[in-house]
Design a protein around this nucleic acid. Structure first.
Lengths: 116, 116
DNA sequence: GGCTTGTTCTATTGAAAATAGAACTATAAA
DNA sequence: TTTATAGTTCTATTTTCAATAGAACAAGCC
């Protein structure tokens, strides 16, 4: 699993982390049943705080993407299959957004709006 | 133009405002050449600070969606036509996201990721 | 039993949002 | 050309939240 994090970004670290995991799941590089790195371990390798990683994990649990329990760690749930279904339609919309000169921010915000 | 704002949201007020305008543009309820409410006016009606509204407007200007100048106000540019092109494809993706039980947050984050 | 791993708690620091008020200037309209 | 409009710029304060830190705790696994 390849997760990058940009401390200089305006997006919160825990959000970046969660987004990174989601993206890896969508790409199929992280699949059902797979175990994510232990929070302390990932925190060390990314040189960030454990609590920040745990917050990202808890966010993913709330979404149903991982099963998170002490002693066991974070395991990707069946929910991950859903993400794969977007692997085609999502890049298509992104391409359209780019063609129209929309920023990533603008397009993401439109998604959020349309969700209500 | 109908803009709502939720002070309790984790999303910044100025981001919500900008998103609201973008959404109205996409829906065709705000069109090219149209003048947005004056910052002071909108601030009063939403019961938020003028600077917060101006920050949202400046964000939209940076995106090229409005022409913002003192004395004139905020006028929607040609760029708005691009948004209309998304009025179909975007709700389609949103529907798919909902069907897959993805949160608005997750889908928006995936958009952001795919944009890089 | 001992190791791993998340949970919970308190506390501190730093950055950014939001507010507030005032003075200023370009634009449009009367 | 005067006047009202409306964004720009400035300083300052308050508030919220991310991120860090450390410690004690509890569930699960070998």
């Amino acid at each position: 699993m390849l997760i990058r994090v940009d401390p200089a970004s305006s997006t919160a670290l825990f959000e970046q982390l969660a987004a990174g995991v989601r993206a890896e799941v969508m790409r199929g590089r992280v699949t059902v049943g797979q175990k994510l790195p232990a929070a302390r371990e990932l925190a060390t390798s990314l040189d960030i705080n454990v609590h920040t990683v745990l917050r990202a994990y808890q966010l993913l649990r709330d979404e149903g993407l991982i099963d998170l329990r002490r002693g066991r760690g974070a395991i990707v749930t069946d929910h991950a299959r859903n993400y794969a279904a977007l692997a085609e339609s999502l890049p298509r919309l992104v391409a359209e957004g780019k063609r129209l000169n929309l920023s990533a921010n603008a397009l993401a915000a439109l998604i959020r709006e349309a969700y209500l």
